[in-house]
Amino acid sequence: MMLQAIDLALVIEKLILIVIVISASLVIAMYTTFAERKVAAILQDRRGPNRAGPFGLLQPLADGLKLFFKEEIIPNFSSKFLFILGPALAMMTAMMTSAVIPWGDKIEFFGRSVALQITDVNIGVLYVFGVVSLGVYGIMIGSWASNNKFSLLGGLRAASQIISYELAMGISMIALLMVTGTLSLKEMVIQQQQTHWNIINQPLGFLIFLICAFAECNRTPFDLPEAENELIGGYHTEYSSMKLGFYLFAEYINMFISSVIMATLFFGGYDMPFVNEALLSPNIAALVGIAALMGKVICFIFLFMWVRWTIPRFRYDQLMHLGWRILIPLALFNMLATGGVILYFGK
């Protein structure tokens, strides 16, 4: 149990990084809820929230405060522990993904070189995939513990939807891994910095990944688990107060994280296009990188919202049809074609 001095410094450094990353993603998710309402309003020729603070910027705080002060209702016949575990798991799995994402290059700080990534594990992509596949537990446990038919239906929909789309997502990711030859997200970004973005190699793979990301985040047009006009509220029908807030919030964190993942996998991560980072001083380069990543993420989040307010919800059989009979064969074909090209041109 001896922690060396250097280890202690590393632990503190990582702890600070974790706190920053988690609080940043919480704040961004908070403002994503605000952005969602604003974008919806703008796309529908309305004004959106503009009362709380200048331009309505304090609206997410007001929303959160309202949720905290709402009455807490736990149904009588539900399993109380599981009822509380549901939203907690949803929130936790939503935030766990951020651990392997490279937010930027190294930053020089009091003579220490700090990598802007919590941990660069050699299985980064698989870690993301694993955590995403666990995300469904929050919804399933919560929906079952509610002891409500509609909640259960929502939970079952969520489970089958996420499992179905995970397959296509995984296969499209395999094609990408065949091109990059690494599982570490950091190395992928460095590769893309040196050559070109992966979207050029894998346009079809990106399309499949994007569609699956929509389904994994339970976003419209795949928001069947919470389809309000047929399942009341889906899996969170029985939830109130901040537990409901956690579920809603987890969705926005998921959206943010999947935007970051897509930007990192296919759009060069923190790579600013047409700028040679090696010429800049390390700190400036890191800041430019973070700004580039955030810019890409904002574009993706806008895409998520734009699609939400354009495309109506799928029917459940259409969802399954798309997942199993179109996306999986397409992803398999993409994998085969990628393998063929790599084999033919010898990479």
């Binding site: 594990v121 050699n122 299985i123 698989l126 870690y127 995939f129 694993g130 596949s133 666990l134 469904v136 537990y137 399933m140 079952w144 259960l152 939970g155 079952l156 489970a159 089958s160 996420i162 499992i163 995970e166």
Partner: peptide
């Protein structure tokens, strides 16, 4: 054996147990 660890989570915890839970809940 990080690869085995994460594959264990993806396959068993992430997919098979979800199906188990699915059936048990129904």
């Amino acid at each position: 054996a990080q690869f085995l660890a994460i594959v264990n989570i993806i396959v068993y915890a992430g997919a098979i147990m979800v199906l188990f839970l699915f059936v048990v809940m129904l």
